[in-house]
Design a protein around this nucleic acid. Structure first.
Lengths: 258, 258
DNA sequence: TTGCTCCTCACGTCACGTGAGGTGGC
DNA sequence: TTGCTCCTCACGTCACGTGAGGTGGC
């Protein structure tokens, strides 16, 4: 009747998602009422949308329609985001296979210490995107409210662990001078001086690994050492335009002669 | 450089997807060459598209571009199919929440034995869709090549195990008379007589469970017994139009008085 | 000598599917 | 008495992530 398998029904019983109307105490046989059919159908649809069982329970438990719709909308937004990501991955794969030998120009640059305001935190790669957006929103609000003028490009500083362990220290900053104290998560700081090997990545961050790979190959082949976190400067980013093909990201590997 | 985590690299080593260029026999330390970076980037993209590791191995192992592209295309087709399915599930969920009390009209009908040509097999629900399409293509080809005229609607007969155990006997048929022997998978047979409770499902098969649920509720509330496989008749189906909203499927539960 | 990095197990994740082995009711 | 259906464990799936515990090289 519901196109749920027997195994699924047993599982839903076990996790408390859909309880049988009666369970025979002698034999353990499960019985359901016809009134449970619509509920089962709703559950099946949520599961078809890959909504986790716990989240389905939440939706069914929330008594008000508003709260229920919020959970549903959030899940649909996640589906839509995954869809965008898939589309980007397809484009990125196609580009990689069609133009395998695209190499960016790499230059060396000494950067001095930069006074800035920054937000930093240990984050996982999964949440990095939303953290990045939220942090820059807060930074910009702070800079605007203090009538400060950015002295240069916004940037980020990312620990190696973030890439290697999927979790590590991230810091985003806007260069400004003369700030004594911060507000909220915003803190004044100085981005340390560094010797950088730099390349500009154009386009979506979905294939930013190509430029990372080119830089890494460059320093490995020249027997340069890499020490410290990677630096990024956002020449054009999601803060300016949602057209990802216009994005430009400067990537800097901190190097030293070995 | 590749945005693959250390854990992922170790895993890819273990399953033989990406072997380190050198492994120190003393310490077990893995070393990679810069030439492996592009390969790692391709792997990352396939995995971003949820291509199973074994399939990625297949793609990378296939020496000719044609075979490689075939595997890729097949995977992209699967992605696209899943996307359609998701879209359908969203529409189906919305419809269920907005119109929870839609009930089809249910009638009783005695059907006589029907001579037909059929293809039958034990199948899983996962492969049912493509099996169905392929089987009907073969049946139609047979009917056309023998200059037979269908005597009524095409149909299907589905064992309960197919719904309850995700795997069971399925049979699809085209009613024709006077066939002595089959070709390929096609076999002449007689669809047995039955007493049916019938409802017509309109629209995509994505929410055909609603009509199944309505029929099941109907027979349960009238204390009718259900015995034998479910019957479907395809009044309008994917064989006639790809516009799923136009589909009409007659569903018959075989009943008896208790 | 002390961190740091790399390593190897072993186990957890998530929603069931897959058997194995057993029992009640017709 | 014989199938049939329902049950309960226990384990497998898939691609890693998460610790625990240990070691080599600077």
């Amino acid at each position: 009747m519901t196109h749920l398998s027997v195994k699924a029904l047993r599982h839903y019983h076990q996790v408390g998602l859909l309880e049988p109307a009666r369970v025979d105490p002698q034999t353990g046989y499960r019985s359901y009422d016809t009134e449970q059919v619509p509920l089962a159908q709703v559950i099946r649809r949520f599961r078809d949308l890959d909504m986790p069982v716990d989240q389905v329970k939440e939706v069914l438990a929330s008594p008000d329609v508003a709260g229920r719709n919020a959970v549903i909308s959030e899940h649909l937004a996640q589906l839509s985001a995954r869809l965008d990501q898939t589309r980007a991955a397809v484009a990125s794969l196609r580009d990689l296979l069609e133009h395998p030998d695209t190499h960016p120009t790499i230059v060396h640059r000494s950067v001095p210490p930069i006074p800035a305001v920054a937000i930093s935190q240990e984050v996982g790669t999964g949440e990095l995107g939303s953290w990045w957006t939220g942090a820059f929103e807060e930074l910009r609000e702070y800079v605007t409210s203090c009538h400060l003028r950015p002295a240069s490009w916004s940037g980020g500083v990312y620990a190696a662990a973030l890439f290697e362990q999927e979790r590590g220290d991230a810091l985003v900053f806007i260069p400004v001078s003369g700030v004594a104290e911060g507000v909220g998560r915003v803190r004044p700081c100085t981005i340390p001086a560094a010797e950088l090997a730099i390349a500009v990545h154009r386009g979506s961050h979905g294939d930013i690994d190509r430029t990372y790979g080119a830089l890494g190959t460059y320093v490995a082949q020249r027997a340069l050492g890499v020490e410290g976190p990677v630096r990024e400067h956002y020449l054009v980013s999601g803060l300016e335009t949602s057209d990802e093909s216009k994005w430009q990201t400067e990537i800097g590997f901190p190097i030293f002669q070995t």
